[in-house]
Amino acid sequence: MHVGTLIKFEGVSFRYEGSESYAIRDVNLEIRRGDFLLIAGMSGSGKSTLLRMMNGLIPHFYRGEMAGRVLVDGVDTREASVAQLARKVGLVFQNPDNQIVTLRVDREVAFGLENLGMSREEMVKRVNYALSKLKIEHLERRSTYELSGGEKQLVAIASIVAMKPDILVLDEPTSELDPFGAARIVRILKELNREGITIIVAEHRLDLFAPSSNRLLVVHEGRIKFDGDPREILYDDPHSLGVKPPGVVKFAKNYGVKGRPLTVGELIRAAAR
């Protein structure tokens, strides 16, 4: 295993208990420190299963048949508990309403830290850190039920960021947000990535995330069909994998713009040449 490899899937297959088909098959994957990995694929393709294998929810929380092994920083997920793995791998789920358990934002952000038995001084520092990273200091004392959908999503992410995991995994973090709320989350994740946190996002909205990611994984029917540079797959033939290229790609292809731009800015610069 490489020095920089944080998560390694070795020949992993998984079938949920009670299900006939395999959710994922023969997955071999190495996620390196500093990656901003985007995982794309249709609903039911196995994206969510993959994520849940990263912090041990599979196989500890979800029962089923697992082949192969997943190593997180050298530790086999079958041998460590979710609580142990969750210190390294922070998982943010799709629906923030089903993650928020307390009645006030600062308590919510501190919740995971309380579970870790942290000292009060350290908790206060971490809460301030997380709130400022997500730029939601103004929400500190707000009641959680007063928050808008976008604010809830930010609080959910903040509560995991406060635990300072090496890897931040997010399952469709922008599905219920409008384009502006979604763009905000992308910016924040990019900043966290620049500071050294490995980011893994499962998302449909490629136009928002592809430009920031250094690596794109396309999952189809439980297998990894593509693993590489996002520009490569988005420009070649994404449709066959149920993935829709962003508007910029369509435009660049139509007008024969070179350089495989993914953002409007890149497109303009490429067109200007």
Binding site: R52, N55, L57, H60, F61, S81, V82, A83, Q84, A86, R87, G90, L91, F93, N95, D97, N98, Q99, V101, D106, R107, A110, F111, G112, L113, E114, N115, L116, G117, M118, S119, R120, M123, V124, V127, S159, I160, M163
Partner: peptide, 25 residues
């Protein structure tokens, strides 16, 4: 469904793994 997702989220935040401390005093 909400309860199930909540349980997942709690596991992932190390709930029930040891002694809890308190943020608010």
């Amino acid at each position: 469904r909400r309860a199930q997702q909540l349980a997942e989220a709690l596991e992932s935040r190390c709930f029930g793994s040891g002694k809890r401390t308190s943020y608010i005093t």
